[in-house]
């Protein structure tokens, strides 16, 4: 699954730590999501989308193999 978390975060000048605090996770989790090392749960995906005030599909996209 591809995601645009990093781009969306940078658009609103938000640091990884600020995003992590906003959705109550650690900074490593944000790093792992941004680099594609970890696919977040539905709850986290919805929280991220709500933080960026975007639809889930605008941030997360399925890839061919998914």
């Amino acid at each position: 699954m591809k995601n645009r978390v990093k781009e969306e975060r940078q658009k609103i000048n938000m640091t990884q730590q600020e995003l992590a605090d906003e959705i109550a996770v650690s900074r490593q989790t944000i790093f792992a999501i941004e680099t594609g090392k970890y696919i977040p749960s539905a709850i986290l995906v919805l929280k991220i989308a709500r933080t960026f005030k975007k639809k889930v599909e605008d941030i997360f996209n399925l890839e061919k193999g998914d």
């Binding site: 109550a24 996770v25 650690s26 490593q28 999501i33 970890y38 749960s41």
Partner: peptide, 11 residues
Amino acid sequence: KEKQEDEFITN
């Protein structure tokens, strides 16, 4: 537990 135990840590 870790300082901040979240789903990634659980994973």
